[in-house]
Amino acid sequence: MIFALELNDIRFAYPGGSEMIFDLSVPAGEIVGLLGASGSGKSTLLHLVAGFEEPQSGMIRIAGDDVTRLDPARRAVSMVFQENNLFHHLSVADNVGLGRSPSLRLTEADRADISKALADVGLAGKEDRRPDALSGGERQRAALARALVRRHPLLLLDEPFASLGPALRTEMVELVRSLQTRTGMTIVFVTHAPEDARALADRIIFLEDGRIAADGPVETFYGPDAPAEFTAYVGRSPFV
């Protein structure tokens, strides 16, 4: 079986830091929530997949292709960060257009795709706005629109809702879910909020000290048989 994402015995350490080991595979179309305390390696895992960090050993495959030594630009992934996804001196449409062409040489068809992607995330008619004129939630929507026009099968989200209020988070979770249903993308997202993970993920991977401490379907994590490490991290969750 070809997985959308595979990490085979990936070993990585920051200068002076302790070694992290990641071993996992994600089938196509799955939504995986990465949870864990600060410093447990959640963001590092995403950075390794995107190619911002290079592992000391091991292999990373995306849709079956070995990408371990490839430049970030040559990997079939898109990423949305917590902040700083948009360039403030460029319009919303240009920011999304960068996903199609880094030099902004766009065809008519490209422009139509950009408008459609913006409509898909609920930003129709805001093409010419500057990012400063958008709310925090709208900026994250624009970043998602860019991921849509890139048409990569794998989407990485690094705490994409962390700076949003509760109502906006719920909206964004629903938006990501519906985009996934429409496109069939595989999504790996990092979050600090167990309720976001419960609402969005099909599967939870819980990290501790650079290792995968627990891995399973979301129902297990929020049910009576939740892994002990996870319960200790969440505390007495209102969901259990």
Partner: peptide
């Protein structure tokens, strides 16, 4: 994250 974004978008 800006530098990461630039490298991912293949600038």
């Amino acid at each position: 994250d800006r530098w990461r974004l630039a490298s991912q978008l293949g600038f």
